[in-house]
Design a binder for these strands. Structure first.
Length: 367
DNA sequence: AATTCGTGGAC
DNA sequence: TGTCCAAGAAT
């Protein structure tokens, strides 16, 4: 078989798919979501894996499926419990959308996930990738699930010079992907492409010598693997410095509530400020001084912010000058879902003994 | 079409 | 230490 035949003949595509599946059957990693056929759990895993590395999702998946074993259980759970179970994973709209979709499933879809690509796509938080993944893995439907791995793998197989984050590039990738997708094992094939992209066909140093598709890869043939895929844009990072305040009074800390839309929507957090972000500290607080508690680095989307954490014993009358927030004791603080930066500071506070809580003894504070 | 939405691992 | 970037979706 020549390389040209891979993308022009049905037979070449079938042979390549077969080689990829044989490789996958040998090396597939034992993730917990690969031990179930429950469509609900497969859906949960796919949403958790959006923009999230597999190594980080495993623990969350096990804990989540224990707390919310069915769509019904998820639909009935308080939002705060759901966000607490998601704490640290980021992109919290995913958790809210999961719960919203679970309500739809529990209330109007007979408690079962819809079994077609189009119906899955209609659920909040389910896009083309996730709909394809659930449809193929849980229901055996022959639809592609093209993620960043798939784009990289196929941009190299095709030696695609056009950007994969534009419609033309995406179309080329999806066409070749669909041509190779075997009708009998679509779920395994979709996972095999991702497994290949995650373990061999990686961005920096692809291991072409071990790749089951190297014989039919145009980038391998032309030595252009490191040039693929091409992106039309790369978001540029920005840095800033600021400070975060831990206001202490009567064994309680001050938390403010974030706006109901946008970044960390609706979350509570320790007040912080940095030049490019919202100032948002009440005037009285800008004059407060306290003990330096170290630095934390926060990064989110394209921002990288270094915050100086300051412990502030609160003077009298400050409460009136700091509206929009509240005081929380140790037990409540421990049970709240917090953004990662505030969560790290919370851990520092418990560990340093600056605030106490029953469910978190000093020993437990060592994690 | 271009932005926004988190976080931490890997090198 | 800095940079890239990961089983994307919504707007």
């Amino acid at each position: 078989m020549t390389k040209k035949e891979l993308f022009t003949s049905r037979q070449g595509a079938e042979q390549a798919a077969s080689a990829l599946l044989d490789w996958y059957d040998r090396v597939r990693r034992p993730f917990p979501w690969r031990e179930t056929t429950d469509p609900y759990k497969i859906w949960i895993s796919e949403v958790m894996l959006q923009q999230t590395q597999t190594s980080r999702a495993a623990d969350y998946y096990l804990r989540w499926t224990g707390l919310f074993p069915t769509a019904e259980a998820l639909a009935r759970a308080p939002e705060e419990d759901v966000l607490k179970a998601w704490e640290g994973l980021g992109y919290y709209g995913r958790a809210r959308n999961l719960r919203a979709a679970a309500k739809v499933i529990a209330d109007t879809l007979g408690r079962k996930l819809p079994e077609s690509y189009e119906e899955l796509l209609a659920l909040p938080g389910v896009g083309p990738y996730t709909a394809g993944a659930v449809a193929s893995i849980a229901f055996g439907l022959p639809v592609p699930a093209v993620d960043a791995n798939g784009k990289r793998v196929f941009s190299r197989l095709l030696d695609l010079g056009c950007p994969v984050d534009r419609s033309a590039g995406e179309g080329a990738v999806r066409e070749a992907f669909s041509l190779m997708l075997p009708r009998d094992r679509p779920g395994d094939f979709n996972q095999a492409v991702m497994e290949l992209g995650a373990t061999l066909c990686v961005p920096r140093s692809p291991k072409c010598g071990e790749c089951p598709l190297s014989g039919v890869c145009r980038a391998r043939e032309r030595g252009t693997a490191l040039l693929r895929p091409v992106f039309s844009r790369r978001e540029k990072g920005e840095t800033a410095e600021g400070r975060m305040l831990v206001l202490l009074r009567d064994g309680k800390v001050y938390l403010r509530k974030r706006p109901s839309r946008g970044l960390w929507a609706g979350f509570e957090e320790f007040p912080w400020e940095a030049p490019p972000a919202e100032p948002l500290l009440p005037h009285a607080l800008s004059r407060t001084e306290g003990a330096d508690f170290g630095l934390i680095r926060c990064s989110f989307t394209r921002w990288r912010i270094t915050l100086r954490v300051v412990i502030v014993p609160v003077p009298d009358g400050l409460e009136e000058n700091a509206p929009g927030g509240r005081w929380a004791g140790g037990d409540e603080l421990a049970s709240l879902p917090l953004p990662a930066g505030s969560a790290r500071v919370r851990k520092m506070l418990f560990r340093a003994g600056l605030i106490a809580c029953l469910s978190r003894t000093p020993k437990a504070g060592a994690e």
